[in-house]
């Protein structure tokens, strides 16, 4: 089962094939685990268990160690994020300019907490520590769109764009 596709497409798991290629390029170099996981995160939006198993088998790293690495680094997630992932920066520069209030507003409107996904799978919220756009503080991003100089009153209109 671990070799088949579990994404529901019924056919060949192209993403998994790609990950196998990434692993193959590592030539058994276990120090590339984080690189491989970054690719999985990028491709799937999270790190599914069956992909962890493929990595474990092919790179000869125990599942528990892989899980330990995934749960150590905040970039990796174990569950799929929403179609639109909203990220509010809580870095110092954004925080002192009121990003907490922005985050609270997003949570209030979507009715979910940080780390959660809305029931329809559309939105998820996460908090980040500095995206490096401190000149635009406070910053909120929706997938790759960056919204600078945020204040809570702008949240509703921005989210409406993605409805």
């Amino acid at each position: 089962m671990s070799n088949g596709c579990e994404c529901g497409c019924g056919g060949k798991d192209e993403k998994l094939e790609k990950i196998r290629e990434v692993i193959a390029k590592c030539n058994g170099d276990k120090s590339q685990l984080i690189h491989v996981l970054n690719e999985v995160q990028e491709l799937y939006g999270y790190v599914p268990t069956y992909v962890q198993k493929v990595i474990s088998d092919e790179m000869d790293i125990p599942m528990a160690e892989i899980y330990g690495v995934i749960t150590f680094y905040s970039r990796f997630s174990l569950e799929a994020k929403g179609k639109y992932n909203i990220s509010v920066c809580l870095g110092t520069a954004c925080y002192v300019k009121g990003s907490q209030a922005v985050l609270d507003k997003v949570k209030e409107i979507l009715g979910i907490d940080v780390g959660g996904v809305t029931a329809d799978g559309k939105f998820s919220i996460e908090q980040t520590r500095c995206v490096g756009a401190c000149g635009l503080a406070p910053v909120m991003t929706v997938n790759n769109d960056v919204y600078g100089n945020m204040d809570p009153s702008k949240v509703k209109d921005i989210l409406a764009k993605y409805e």
Partner: peptide, 10 residues
């Protein structure tokens, strides 16, 4: 050389 357990979370 089993690795059934490890440190998880942070």
């Amino acid at each position: 050389n089993v690795g059934a357990i490890d440190t998880i979370n942070r």
